[in-house]
Design a protein around this nucleic acid. Structure first.
Lengths: 253, 253
DNA sequence: GTCTATATCTGGATAGAC
DNA sequence: GTCTATCCAGATATAGAC
């Protein structure tokens, strides 16, 4: 597992397109940098009643430490295998201190999962451009999704691998969130078919395939790192791979 | 998680093609049925020195029970979360009895992983037809891989999700095994390109994409079950999806 | 707010009766 | 071959000093 970048996207950012309307990774990254600190400040404010520490600067600093360390240790060996003693010694915080930030190990898990889902929802939503053509929408969404999962890779990997450890309610949310993303692609495919830009290929199966290819990027990150494939190279490959399957032979006027 | 079929493929089977050279799921399944009992008999004979029980019929019966229960419980909640007490009460065997079949929880994990890898290797190898065209090879391999993972879904899902819990050596084996499958597809792609059947698309990325689509079938089995998509329908979709990206416009004479 | 010390529990593993 | 009883390491969680 690679070291975890402490900076992440700002969920409220504007879209970052160049002249050709194509989002580039660096621009995307720079335009809307959201430090892990900002994410943790949000988490703090939301959970202020359950968190015992009241001073924001202190709390935020420690939350950054806690989440950062949790993601690192868990993505190495699994959340369940990581004991709170591990977390304590790796973070430098005592057991007692940890318990001022969450009331149980399960709550810690939930906090991370919840925040992850929220950011995805926001970022994807912010980049939906109702006016664009289906083909543009599809390309943008693939890029945005890949870039987002690239910068927040540890979060996504964690969410993916630890779904099983959630309780029923949280688990359902996680599944809903997954199906929602797929639905967005599904709808774009249908719209493209209505307009004659796409062939009559099965939209459900195709949306599933797109999702699978997107997930491969963050689930098998080690493989792509080892092969020195950049996220932008993968994005371009994915777009051409998908489009060759769905683009109509003769594009409409 | 669906109930686990107790019957699996025989790894030494002949290929099961119809007139058109196309492997159909039912034929594949019937031709070479390997009951879970047979797999467990193999495991028993291989581990006879470490297994304390000496009577084959007893041992095999209990091993079936143990593996079946382990896969069911683990795929629900994770191997680590499943305590041996859970396994004991769900299987009806006492703690002491369990420990006559393996010497530690980790050994149980290894036994399952190892057997899984062996069967895959055998089945894929048996279906490699050196004489066939790249296009035929690709189609056959996609179908065989999907059919195999369909019948042994719990095994594959388990292997996929529990890789993190393996020790270094076993983990490396698991990764090697994954990369090997990808390599097979990679080589077929290169061969097809040399013969002019395939376009000059990036073979490494394409092989990775094929692997991702194959894995989606058994990792997201719940999704496809819910949508009532058969393995054959998925196979045909996948083949056409992949081929549209790699087939040369004008196939060679 | 943070630490140390400790209570309490859980789960892997084993010994020895049957 | 299987079971019960038990041991003990290690984990979560808390209490109370500082």
């Amino acid at each position: 597992m690679t070291a975890i970048a402490k900076e992440f996207f700002h969920p409220m950012m504007e879209t970052a397109k160049n002249q050709a309307g194509k989002i580039c990774f660096d621009t995307f990254k720079q335009m809307a940098l959201l430090s892990m600190e900002d994410i943790c400040r949000e988490i703090f404010r939301e959970n202020q009643e359950s968190i015992k520490i009241k001073k924001e600067p202190v709390a935020v600093r420690n939350l950054v430490n806690i989440f950062y360390t949790t993601l690192t240790l868990s993505n190495e060996k699994g959340f369940h295998t990581m004991s709170l003693r591990d977390l304590s010694s790796a973070s430098g915080l005592s057991m007692g201190a940890l318990y001022s930030y969450f009331s149980s190990k399960d709550e810690l898990l939930e906090m991370i999962q919840k925040q992850g889902r929220r950011i995805v929802g926001k970022v994807l939503f912010d980049h939906l451009d109702a006016g664009a053509s289906p083909r543009e929408k599809m390309r943008t969404l693939i890029r945005v999704h890949l870039y987002l999962t690239e910068v927040m890779q540890p979060w996504f990997y964690f969410a993916y691998m630890e779904t099983k450890n959630l309780d029923k309610t949280q688990r359902r949310r996680s599944i809903e969130s997954e199906l929602f993303t797929e639905q967005v692609f599904h709808d774009i495919l249908l719209e493209g078919q209505r307009q004659g830009a796409y062939t009559a290929i099965d939209a459900t199966l195709t949306a599933g395939a797109i999702k699978a290819l997107l997930q491969d990027w963050y689930v098998k990150r080690w493989k792509y790192s080892r092969r020195r494939i950049s996220v932008e190279a993968y994005a371009e490959f994915m777009i051409s791979f998908v489009e060759s399957a769905i683009l109509a032979e003769t594009p409409p006027a």
